[in-house]
Each structure stands twice: as structure tokens, then as C-alpha cells.
């Protein structure tokens, strides 16, 4: 029996690794892995076994990470690696792909063009693998909120679980919805500071995207990928 501690690793910086944190295991510029620090993990037979992560430099007992400092070196059975604090940029490089993702150079430009900042209300469709979502959440927290939509139920639930396990769930609402067909919903009308569309047929969602932008606000940038 073990407890899942609420980790704050994506929400704010901390010095040492705790249970439940997501950490970045850095082996090299092109070899990084995101790990959730849990002592046990399910194997193929659905049995709980000790969480041992295999790398090209040998094995790592994940529970040994607890108490290590972020940014420090850890021993692997045949070498060593660094454990880094998770950031949206590192997450973009390590996340499990469900879709094609947006990478940091494009994320930067999108956030720049949307002119969002701490406190902004942002609408995003679709969620995809949540690469851009993580960066936007960091930018708008703690006062802002991200409403993100995807028409794929599995992607929605996986993204939701990731946000929760990264303890940034309070800044984001994930919903399954085909925004081209159904719009963004009544409760978002006239509420958003910025809208980002990354859809197969973005032109079908432009009208409802415009309707969720704040009426009084002079800002209200829509970026379409």
C-alpha cells in the first residue's frame, strides 16, 4: 500500500524530489525521459512490481530518486544521469505522443502572438498531446484558466490525467467536444482573452472562435495553426 502524494513539480520549483513528482531523467541532449516517481508499477500481468526504469546506461530504481536534489547526478547501474526539474519545454521533448505535437519554437511564437500573460483566459482546440497546453498553463497561472477541447475521448482523458498528475489541473478544463460542429459552449461566450485553433478544418470554427472573445476587451487574438 502506498500513497500518491500531490506533487507540485510543474506548478512551482522545489529543491528535492518527492513521491509523485514527475522528473526528467537526462542522459544526453537527444536522450531524455519523463518519469513519475512511484515505488511500484503495474507489469504486463497487471501485478504491482518494483518500479525499475531501464536506460541505455543501466537500470534505475525509481524510488531511490526520492530525496535527491533536482539538478543532481544519479547513479545508474552502468553509468549516471541527471535528474532535472520538469518544465513545459522538457515535457515537450519527452511526452508520450498521441498526436503530432507542437515544439518549443512554435509554442513560443504562438504564445507571443496570442499576447497572453498571467491571468488570461485562453481557449484551445484541440488538445492533442498537451504539449502547447503545458506551456500556456505556465504562462497564465495562477490567475488565468485554459479551456481546452478535443473531439477524441481517449486524448481528453489522458490529457486530463496528465494535468492532474502534474498538479496543474486547477488551471485547466479539458472537455470532449467537436468545436467545429458544436462550438465552444454557452458558458464561454465573450469570456476569452485569446483563442488558439489547431484543427483539421479550422475555418469551420472561426465564427465561434470570434464569439468567445471578450467583447469589452481590446485584446483578443486568434491564432490558427
Amino acid at each position: 500500500m502506498f500513497f500518491i502524494f500531490s506533487s507540485m513539480s510543474f506548478d512551482c520549483f522545489k529543491e528535492t524530489i518527492e513521491l509523485g513528482d514527475t522528473v526528467m531523467l537526462y542522459l544526453g541532449v537527444n536522450s531524455m525521459h519523463a518519469l513519475e516517481v512511484q515505488p511500484k508499477i503495474k507489469n504486463k500481468k497487471e501485478e504491482m512490481v518494483e518500479n525499475v526504469f531501464q536506460t541505455t546506461y543501466g537500470a534505475l530504481k525509481v524510488k531511490d530518486l526520492v530525496g535527491k536534489k533536482y539538478g543532481s547526478k544519479v547513479e545508474l547501474s552502468k553509468g549516471w544521469a541527471y535528474v532535472l526539474h520538469p518544465t513545459p519545454e522538457l515535457w515537450t521533448l519527452t511526452l508520450p505522443h498521441r498526436t503530432q505535437i507542437i515544439y518549443t519554437p512554435d509554442i513560443s511564437m504562438i504564445i507571443f502572438q496570442l499576447e497572453i500573460r498571467s491571468g488570461s483566459i485562453v481557449v484551445e482546440a484541440g488538445t492533442g498531446s498537451g504539449s502547447l497546453s503545458h506551456a500556456m498553463i505556465r504562462c497564465i497561472k495562477p490567475g488565468g484558466h485554459l479551456f481546452t477541447f478535443d473531439f477524441h475521448s481517449h486524448r481528453v482523458s489522458v490529457a486530463q490525467a496528465e494535468f492532474e498528475s502534474h498538479s496543474i489541473g486547477q488551471y485547466v478544463t479539458v472537455e470532449q467536444r467537436d468545436v467545429c460542429r458544436d462550438g465552444f459552449g454557452a458558458q464561454l461566450q465573450g469570456k476569452a482573452d485569446a483563442v488558439f485553433l489547431d484543427l483539421p478544418h479550422p475555418w469551420e470554427a472561426v465564427a465561434c472562435a470570434a464569439s468567445v472573445i471578450k467583447e469589452s476587451g481590446e485584446f483578443g487574438n486568434i491564432v490558427i495553426l
Binding site: P88, F112, S118, P142
Partner: peptide, 12 residues
């Protein structure tokens, strides 16, 4: 824009 994103800027 890449400078501000890469440095991981946020409000606190």
C-alpha cells in the same frame, strides 16, 4: 519569444 519561453518565465 523563444527567449521568454525557454527561460520558463512565469508570474512568480
Amino acid at each position: 519569444s523563444q527567449i521568454t519561453t525557454s527561460v520558463g518565465i512565469h508570474s512568480h
